[in-house]
């Protein structure tokens, strides 16, 4: 069965870039969100078993989204994909329960490696 995958980023270019970097032949049902609030709703609607999450976003940013996911105990695996590559940001998202951190622009190989490492692929 197709896995519901959600891509959350305020940039439509970044969302497209992420979508086409997903491994070929991976059976997914893809949805998109433009900010954290939309992502939270999509997860509740069962559209985000796996979430690729940007950090710098309006309305609700990635840090806030992770905190909300934890608070509401939502069922999703979060991989942060961000341009904020400061060690502190990395540590903060891992502390908030992210599976891993991929720096932008995300390469196909890196995404595949992370998905494989967590037994998702």
């Amino acid at each position: 069965m197709a896995i519901p995958v959600l891509i959350c980023d305020d940039s439509s270019f970044a969302r497209k870039q992420m979508a086409r970097s997903l491994p070929e032949g991976w059976d997914v049902e893809l949805s998109f969100a433009c900010n954290g609030e939309e992502a939270i709703q999509a997860i509740k609607d069962g559209k985000g078993e796996i979430l690729f999450l940007d950090l710098t976003m309006p309305v609700l940013d990635g840090f806030g989204t992770l905190a909300q996911i934890r608070k509401e105990d939502l069922n999703t695996m979060v991989i942060v994909v961000s341009g904020d590559i400061q060690p502190e940001a990395h540590a903060e998202v891992m502390g908030l329960g992210a599976l891993d951190f991929i720096k932008k622009p995300a390469s196909k190989d890196k995404i595949k490696e992370v998905l494989t490492r967590f037994g998702i692929l």
């Binding site: 940039s11 950090l55 710098t56 341009g83 590559i85 400061q86 060690p87 940001a89 720096k103 932008k104």
Partner: peptide
């Protein structure tokens, strides 16, 4: 966004601080 993140990372390491990134 990607470029400023790389620049901020260098500044953060130089000053040993956390840089707040804007949009």
């Amino acid at each position: 966004n990607v470029a400023m993140g790389q620049a901020a990372d260098l500044l953060a390491r130089l000053l040993d601080v956390k840089v707040i990134l804007p949009i």
